[in-house]
């Protein structure tokens, strides 16, 4: 019994990283109605960003998160101008395809540089032992980092002018423009933050598991699951839903083979999409 509990706690820790990734997707989705299909490749770049920095400087990975996030912001601005700015407000097919095109290019370049063989960040903190179970230090540190970043985002969105502008645009783009908010700049900033969150979550994942340039795809799918569970455009709901998904993985993993988990997750995903299109926390509106 306590085995399940330990597995669930571990799932909860990892789930907070899923939640962080999904926050980025959800923020972009909510603010500009764009489903960002570069999400997975940006997570992967976060992993490799951490790998390269760690290899070069050998510093503390949790400090190295800061330059990864900064690079993520810059990359986000680049990707915004390359593939997003001109599709905002056009059909969703266009934004799906344009972000997907960039995703292919990033994966292609990444594969050319790093091939598809696994890498890992060789760093480990000592864990905490409770009875017969040890919780890995890296898992705990990753969860704490994810929560800290989420709190920073919350502070930014609710207590700064720029953050309020983002929320205003998400709420009603036309009204925000009438009040003199430049929606292009706001969208760019929101997109850059979304990408930075993806990169940060990738960087954290790199301290937990080995990864390849293709690993981002799996986390992208988990982000979709989490975002849909939370209801679109609810970044903090996404964090909670991410933790729930981690809990679920932790709760079922002692009983079934790991290879069944995707089936459960995506079965759940499709069912939630069909029956709760506004998310499990969402309310039906007219």
């Amino acid at each position: 019994m306590s085995g399940i509990l330990a597995s669930m706690i571990d799932g909860l820790l990892i789930g907070s990283v899923y939640g962080l990734a999904a926050m980025g997707l959800s923020l972009i989705w909510g603010v500009m109605d764009v489903i960002n299909l570069t999400h997975g490749s940006m997570i992967a770049l976060g992993m490799f960003g951490m790998y390269l920095l760690f290899a070069a400087i050998a510093g503390n990975p949790y400090v190295l998160l800061i330059p990864v996030i900064a690079a993520g912001l810059l990359l986000g601005i680049l990707v915004y101008w390359l593939s997003v700015n001109w599709v905002v407000g056009r059909s969703q097919l266009m934004s799906l395809l344009s972000t997907f095109a960039v995703n292919m290019m990033v994966i292609g370049i990444g594969t050319a540089i790093w091939s598809t063989s696994p890498y890992n960040v060789d760093f480990s903190l000592s864990g905490i032992t409770v009875g017969a179970y040890t919780f890995t230090g890296n898992h705990i540190a990753a969860a704490i980092s994810a929560l800290l970043i989420a709190l920073l985002l919350e502070a930014f969105l609710y207590h700064t002018r720029a953050g309020k502008a983002i929320r205003a645009v998400a709420d009603n783009r036309d009204a925000a423009e009438l009040m003199g908010i430049s929606s292009t700049r706001v969208l760019m900033v929101a997109f850059a933050i979304g990408i930075a969150l993806a990169a940060a979550s990738g960087a954290l994942v790199s301290t937990l598991f080995p990864f390849t340039i293709l690993s981002g795809a799996g986390y992208q799918l988990k982000s979709f699951v989490v975002t849909v569970l939370a209801g679109l455009g609810k970044p903090f709901g996404a964090l909670v839903a991410g933790v729930l998904l981690g809990l679920l993985e932790g709760a079922v993993s002692p009983f079934i083979a790991v290879s069944w988990i995707p089936l459960i997750e995506f079965g759940l995903f499709v069912i939630v999409l069909i029956f709760f299109p506004r998310g499990i926390f969402g309310k039906a509106t007219a």
């Binding site: 292919m104 290019m105 994966i107």
Partner: peptide
Amino acid sequence: EFHLVIAGGLLLLVI
């Protein structure tokens, strides 16, 4: 090694 890069760039240009 660049076939995905070219495919992605092509798609971006076309749309």
